[in-house]
Simulated scan of single mutants.
Amino acid sequence: MPKLGMEPLRRRALIDATIAAIGDAGTLDVTMSDIAGRAGVSSALAFHYFRGKDDLLLATMRHILAELGRDARTALKNAKTPRARVSAMLEVNFSAKQFRPEIIAAWLAFYVEAQRAEPMRRLLRVYASRLHSNLMSGLSALLPRDQAVMTAEGVAALIDGLYIRRALKQGEPDAASAIALVEDYLSLKLP
């Protein structure tokens, strides 16, 4: 007899195990069996909750994006000026919760999978649209519209590029230098 209320806990354990497994491997070369073992459940149960590794990766990225979204909303709510809104987005994207090796590895796997799987591509478009919108919430008050759009694209490209670059390095991510690099770019673009 299944225990009531266990499904959300097991799903979350599988998502956390997916992040850890991808982080350790640095790629998607992990199996459902490996992930299930890390989560402390059977492979059969993992397949019961998620039809396969693609579904589990999609759920994992939705989880990561949901956390990023919650943190972004809180940061934007607390930002008092348009310029502070832009900096708040950098702080969120390079926060200790997001800019850590296992999450970075999951993002890299996500970027790769988005090239072949339409559900992943759709989720990536949602992420890109939200990031653009959040950046524009500050930039549109600081720059003419066309310049704000170009600057938001530049900042988004730097964020994504720094995640990819970080995924290819060893050691702990350096959020402060990543933020400083993007802030330097912004100093060239903002009056």
Rank of each mutant, 00 (worst) to 15 (best):
E172F: 08
L168P: 05
Y163A: 01
N134W: 07
Y163R: 05
V149K: 11
Y127T: 03
L123C: 07
L158Q: 11
R130Q: 12
L168H: 13
K169Y: 13
R166C: 10
A167E: 05
N134Y: 10
R125N: 11
S140I: 04
Q147P: 05
L124F: 09
T151Y: 02
M150S: 14
G171P: 03
Y163P: 02
D160R: 12
L124S: 09
L158N: 11
A148W: 01
Q147D: 14
V155L: 04
V155P: 02
R165C: 12
R145L: 12
A152E: 04
L124E: 06
I159L: 00
V126P: 00
D160P: 03
Y163S: 05
D146M: 09
G138N: 03
V155D: 01
Q147T: 10
V126T: 11
E172N: 12
L158Y: 08
L135H: 01
L162C: 01
D146H: 13
R130T: 09
G161D: 07
I164N: 06
R130N: 10
L143M: 10
K169P: 06
L168Q: 14
P144F: 03
L168A: 15
A148C: 10
A167H: 06
Q147C: 10
L124G: 08
I159W: 00
L135P: 04
E172V: 13
A167C: 14
S137V: 00
M136Y: 07
A148T: 01
S129I: 03
Q170N: 14
V149E: 14
A156K: 04
G154I: 02
M136H: 11
P144A: 09
R166P: 01
A167R: 06
A152K: 01
E153C: 14
L123H: 06
H132K: 13
S133D: 14
A167S: 15
A152S: 13
A128W: 02
G161V: 03
D160E: 12
S129Y: 05
G154F: 04
L123D: 03
R130V: 04
A157V: 06
L143Y: 01
A141L: 11
H132E: 09
L139M: 10
L158I: 08
A141Q: 12
G138P: 00
M150K: 14
A167Y: 09
G154M: 05
G154E: 04
L139T: 01
G171V: 02
N134T: 09
L162H: 03
L162F: 06
I164H: 08
L158E: 09
D160K: 07
